[in-house]
């Protein structure tokens, strides 16, 4: 529990321990860092990330962690990154434009890159042992966008409550990650918190705060973090190019008309993907899609815009089964359209 107790087991008795504690906490030489010093050190590597969004429930900000002095930033994969301009602001107020290096859609993590040297990184140590329930932790995040400019992100304290597999969703969206997470006795489920750093009392990065999700079973908002080994795997895959292509921007697009799905004209930045009609005899018509259906997901991935529909379909391989989730009269309806044709294939 206490670092001092663990470091000096042989002296952990009575008055000698008191002396050790006093030395460790107050002495100028071998003193353990105070929580304030630990936070101050680690928070330099936590950045405020600004991108797309700005409407209720879809904030345009989240948190990122500088994991290399060269400017690699780990953050969560979210709509915030669905923007041509992503900015990272350090705790000294420096603002950097960020480039999306790649994303791991399974763990819903992304890596950004900013141009810098000798940046104050909070390193990813993949082989750090997992922390056990009862361990005290600190969460550093850009919650509620409270901190701006050179203001430091917010610090919260808590305890690891449990180490369990994640089963979570938000609305109709089901979290793809089913691996282990740390459940936290600390309210980290706040706007802007995702991507934040979970550190131990030595200032080591032990996890990354996850997206805002509810438990599938109970609907309770979850306070959780991805363990650092999972984060490291995602980071390695992304940087090595092994993770799937980023969802946002740049992906190949697929025209839903090839499935017989005729959407309203793409007139806005984010045209909501309403069905205008289905082509008679098409897979869409066979699946029972109707005019005025609103597409909300393609194979479980949310599609807030027409463009997102084209990109989500483009991310599938030819022959992959296509499943569209639509809202019809307030109800969610799932429609299977069969295998996706090739992009050049005539309907």
């Amino acid at each position: 529990m206490s670092d001092t107790m663990r470091a000096r087991p042989a002296r952990a008795r009575g008055a000698r321990l008191a002396l050790a504690l006093a030395l460790a906490l107050a002495g100028p030489v071998s003193r353990a860092a105070t929580p304030g010093e630990t936070i101050a050190g680690a928070a330099r590597g936590v950045v405020k990330v600004y991108g797309a969004g700005g409407v209720r429930g879809l904030e345009a900000y989240q948190t990122g962690i500088l994991v290399t002095p060269a400017g690699h930033v780990v953050t969560v994969l979210s709509t915030v990154l669905d923007s041509d301009t992503i900015d990272c602001v350090l705790d000294d107020g420096r603002r950097y434009p960020a480039r999306l290096v790649g994303a791991d859609p399974a763990r819903e993590l992304a890596v950004l890159a900013i141009e810098g040297e000798d940046l104050p990184a909070l390193p990813l140590v993949a082989d750090l042992p997992r922390v056990a329930p009862g361990t005290r932790v600190l969460a550093l995040s850009n919650l509620f966008g409270v901190a701006v400019g050179d203001e430091r992100v917010s610090a919260q304290h808590g305890v690891i409550s449990a180490v369990v597999p994640l089963e979570a969703r938000r609305g109709s969206y089901e979290a793809p990650y089913r691996g282990t997470v740390y459940l936290l006795d600390c309210t980290t489920n706040n706007p802007g918190s995702p991507g934040g750093a979970l550190i131990d009392f030595r200032g080591r990065l032990v996890g990354v705060l996850g997206k805002e999700l509810r438990a599938s079973a109970s609907g309770v908002w979850l306070n959780y973090a991805l363990p650092i080994d999972e984060v490291a795997k995602a980071y390695d895959d992304i940087v090595a190019g092994r993770a799937s292509a980023p969802v946002a921007g740049g992906g190949t697009r697929f025209d839903p008309a090839l499935l017989g799905v005729l959407l309203v004209p793409d007139l806005l930045d984010r045209t909501p993907p309403f069905l205008e009609a289905t082509r008679a005899g098409s897979a869409a018509a066979a699946a029972g899609l109707r005019a005025d259906d609103l597409l909300v997901a393609v194979n479980g991935r949310t599609v807030p815009s027409r463009r997102a529909v084209e990109e989500a379909l483009g991310a599938l391989a030819t022959g992959d089964p296509v499943r569209l989730t639509v809202v019809r009269g307030g109800a969610i309806v799932e429609c299977d359209l069969g295998p996706r044709p090739a992009a050049g294939e005539a309907p």
Partner: peptide
Amino acid sequence: GIVSGVHRYQGPAGTILEYADCIQVD
């Protein structure tokens, strides 16, 4: 809890209830 942030600014409602240089806590 702990002090989460210092010198926070939380804007007013109209011209009143302005929280300037406030302390954020968990």
